[in-house]
């Protein structure tokens, strides 16, 4: 368990959390759903002044929904690891590092096959997200869509999320809450930036084209980042002969 009382503890943990948050942010499902949501909102409105207002509200609600779900997931997994998982620290980190490394490898191998268009989520969930995106007309529906997308991303983000949760194991305190919120904020930052860009009048097609042309780079950086993070946490917390 980590007392989180020393500045060096906080710095080490913050470095892992920031890297995990950046990796989480690098996965593109939530961004993809947001651009679709933006296109649908603009496409169904007729009065130009209402365009921007509806778009800004829907995009912001979606981003907040995603932020909320990431925070809830991180808190829930932290609670489970703190209260229910009794595996000693070092074996736990070895397992998590392995999971992170394998996820990174899977990102490289699975995506390589079809240029990065295949999702890890079931077809039914993908169709559900598509239908919900099309039918989300109110801010509340966009908020819920953001939350569902946060859940749908789990196969992609399980490894960084588990790293953060394992770091935050222990009795709840303000430092842990702050770190958890920092992780959720970094992970959902692209959505807030994209929401702001769309609200400011950026063309969704331009944003999508940028994403499309940089897809391979984003995947490569996700895979390598996961491998680097796994080695980093293994060296920090999983090395040594004692299991604690």
């Amino acid at each position: 368990m980590y007392p989180l009382t020393q500045p060096s503890d906080l710095l080490t943990i913050a470095s892992v959390v920031v890297l995990a948050g950046l990796l989480h942010a690098n996965f593109q499902l939530a961004v993809s759903v947001l651009t679709r949501l933006g296109a649908h909102v603009l496409g169904r409105n007729d009065i130009r002044r209402q365009h921007q207002r509806h778009l800004a509200k829907a995009a912001a609600a979606y981003a907040w929904g995603n932020f909320l779900m990431i925070g809830l997931l991180a808190a829930g997994v932290t609670y489970v690891l703190s209260a229910l998982v009794t595996v000693p620290q070092k074996p736990l980190w070895v397992m998590l590092s392995l999971l992170g490394g394998l996820t990174g490898l899977a990102v490289l191998l699975i995506y390589r096959r079809d240029g990065g268009r295949r999702l890890w989520i079931p077809e039914a969930l993908k169709n559900y997200l598509y239908e919900r995106t099309k039918r989300s007309t109110t801010a509340a529906e966009s908020l819920a869509l953001g939350m569902v997308t946060g859940l749908a991303e789990l196969p992609f983000i399980a490894a960084p999320l588990l790293f953060v949760a394992a770091l935050l194991r222990g009795a709840p305190d303000l430092n842990r809450l702050a770190i958890l919120l920092l992780y959720a904020a970094i992970a959902s930052a692209p959505l807030f930036l994209l929401a702001a860009a769309m609200g400011a009048g950026q063309q969704i097609s331009r944003l999508e084209r940028w994403r499309e042309s940089n897809r391979r780079f984003l995947q490569l950086s996700s895979a390598l980042g996961l491998a680097v993070l796994s080695v980093y946490v293994l060296s920090l917390f999983g090395a040594g002969s004692s299991p604690w």
Binding site: Q28, L29, S32, V33, R36, A39, G116, R117, R118, L119, K126, L129, Y130, T133, Q203, I204, S205, R206, E208, R209
Partner: peptide, 14 residues
Amino acid sequence: PEAAYIYQQHKNIS
């Protein structure tokens, strides 16, 4: 052309 791109991509969640 921009609209055509969005139209083509509309179901592509990835």
